[in-house]
Design a protein around this nucleic acid. Structure first.
Lengths: 106, 106
DNA sequence: AGTCTATTTGGCCAAATAACCATATATAAG
DNA sequence: CTTATATATGGTTATTTGGCCAAATAGACT
């Protein structure tokens, strides 16, 4: 693995890392239904609004979402919607894992 | 978001987190070509073998890979191959991001 | 101008992560 | 049985992460 390939895998990991947080993942799923302003997330997520802002900033930095300021509010939307397609496979992993756990008990 | 939903998103995030490391991501891609023993990774990856072992353990714990001991060696293989399908979307995110960066410069 | 609201940013702290080294365990080989 | 090899695990340390609070910024309203 040379330096360029290394950089590539670091970039790929960064994208996945941006998604790899419960709150961020949930927000991405919500954005799958349409754009949302920060304030909408603040209303429903039980963490400090500054934390939400930082989560969104991480998603933006990763290139997953884009933002647009309209008046006082900032709206976020998915920039690359294919990330939504990860969900079904992630669920498959969880189910497979749940089965493995169940097999240990039984 | 109730407690159960919260647990679900934590589980989903855990799977993505397991993939969100350059070395682990690379190993998963390699496993896409077929099973590998730990020693094969140790030979080509420039980190301590204990670190590689721990990375594989994280992937196993997440339910992404499974292992099988044969003789002295332990072989790992993909348990849920659909994770390979993430790659093209992750690359799309990176490309979209690269374009955005380029636009800023130009 | 002054105030209220929406959002971002910086500082700080606790917890999680990832690396290394040393040690333990298991299997094969001599 | 002793040694060598393959892997896993525990300890330690440096770095990163994620949370909160306080402060800064920007737009809308009076």
């Amino acid at each position: 693995m040379n330096a360029q390939e290394k950089r590539l895998y670091e970039a790929k990991a960064k994208v996945l890392k941006a998604l790899a947080h419960p709150t961020r993942l949930w927000m991405v799923e919500q954005l799958g239904f349409g754009e949302r302003c920060v304030c909408e997330f603040v209303d429903v997520i039980e963490v400090d609004f500054s934390t939400i802002s930082k989560h969104l900033s991480i998603l933006k930095q990763a290139g997953i979402v884009e933002d647009e300021k309209r008046g006082k509010q900032v709206f976020y939307r998915l920039k690359v919607p294919c990330v939504l397609s990860f969900m079904s496979c992630v669920e498959a992993v969880i189910e497979s894992q749940a089965k493995a756990q169940a097999a240990l008990i039984a």
